[in-house]
């Protein structure tokens, strides 16, 4: 029994050392997002609290903690309180399988990519629950929009993942990274990378696909009735999800923790730094797109997902499979 407790203690210690950096980096990433947004629009962005305004998010979080949590009288209280908890938990739970280097990973499971996909497909529940439990028109409309949007873009993300898996021959995230040692998949699968990136914008409800919270039409979408810490949890969960999608993109296409090239000055830089810089690069693209692209119309969004991305990624899947088969490059089965 003591042994089990010891193992449990070690695991808890590892989990804390995973979660605390993620929460801190989520806070930093919010600052970065607002900063980039400001710079694009020739504003300064948050620059008052701390050096370069770095502590702005911490100040915001403190403000949210001390604000009153208002629960609408006609809301379904249990579901209303559960919704932000579900969003936040799911956003953090997925990080368990993200490899920061070959052995710096909490759980190196065989079906890592499926796990990521499953968790990101559960993310829709936080939003639906929040929207429905508020018992108000705008949140409900926002929730329905976002559920439809997330379910439809998941389909194309799934097919893109299959594309990559065809080249790798394993569902393990570390194997996916190691398979890119010679060539990052962003080069042979560049169209898929673009579609993955756009789909992950839609999947995380980021502009230009932020229709669930389009303030011009729906006030704040599913978050309308939320206040104080519960709103902040939705917000943290959203940004943790964005970081997760960036991590997924860098694992699937940008070679994860592998260096740019396996030559002297580049390969002494530790692997986690490569991983973090790739995540940051993708996040900068997210932030720039938020600042420069106008919002899509809802029917255009659905059309893009179902009529353009889905057929295109299916065709590309067939092409990839045929190419691999014809040139005998299919991953070898090692039993």
């Amino acid at each position: 029994m003591i042994e089990y407790l010891e193992i449990l203690g070690q695991e808890v210690y590892k989990i804390i050392f995973l979660l605390v950096p993620i929460l801190v980096s989520v806070a930093m990433i919010v600052w970065l997002d607002r900063r980039v947004w400001g710079l694009v629009q020739k504003r300064k962005g948050p620059n008052v609290v701390g050096p370069f305004g770095l502590f702005q998010t911490l100040a915001d979080a403190l403000k949210y903690i001390f604000k009153e949590i208002i629960i609408p009288a006609s809301a379904n209280k249990v579901v209303f309180i559960l919704a932000p908890i579900v969003t936040m938990t799911l956003a953090l739970v997925a990080w368990a399988v993200i490899p920061m280097s070959e052995d710096l990973v909490l759980a190196n499971i065989n079906v890592g990519i499926l796990y990521l996909f499953a968790i990101s497909s559960l993310g829709v529940y936080g939003i639906i629950m929040g929207g429905w439990a508020s018992n108000s028109k705008y949140p409900f409309l926002g929730a329905i929009r976002s559920a439809a949007q997330m379910v439809s873009y998941e389909v194309s993300i799934g097919i893109i993942i299959i594309n990559v898996l065809l080249c790798v021959g394993s569902l393990n995230l570390n194997d996916i990274v190691i398979a890119q040692k010679e060539l990052w998949y962003v080069i042979p699968l560049f169209p898929m990378f673009v579609i993955f990136f756009i789909s992950s914008l839609a999947e995380t409800n980021r502009p230009p696909f932020d229709l669930p919270e389009a303030e011009a039409e729906l006030v704040a979408g599913y978050q309308t009735e939320y206040s104080g810490m519960m709103y902040a949890m939705f917000w943290l969960g959203e940004y943790a999800n964005i970081l997760l999608m960036c991590a997924m993109g860098s694992i699937l296409f940008l070679g994860g923790w592998l260096p740019l090239m396996d030559i002297y000055p580049l390969n002494i830089i530790p692997a986690p730094i490569w991983m973090i810089s790739k995540i940051l690069f993708l996040f900068l693209l997210f932030a720039l797109i938020k600042a420069i692209v106008p919002r899509y119309r809802y029917d255009q969004l659905m059309r893009l997902g179902w009529k353009i991305f889905l057929p295109f990624s299916l065709i590309y899947l067939v092409l990839t499979a045929s190419f691999l088969f014809y040139f005998d490059k299919l991953p070898k089965v090692n039993i």
Partner: peptide
């Protein structure tokens, strides 16, 4: 995992 993705998701 497939149960989670297909049925729950």
């Amino acid at each position: 995992m497939i149960l989670l993705i297909v049925y729950v998701g």
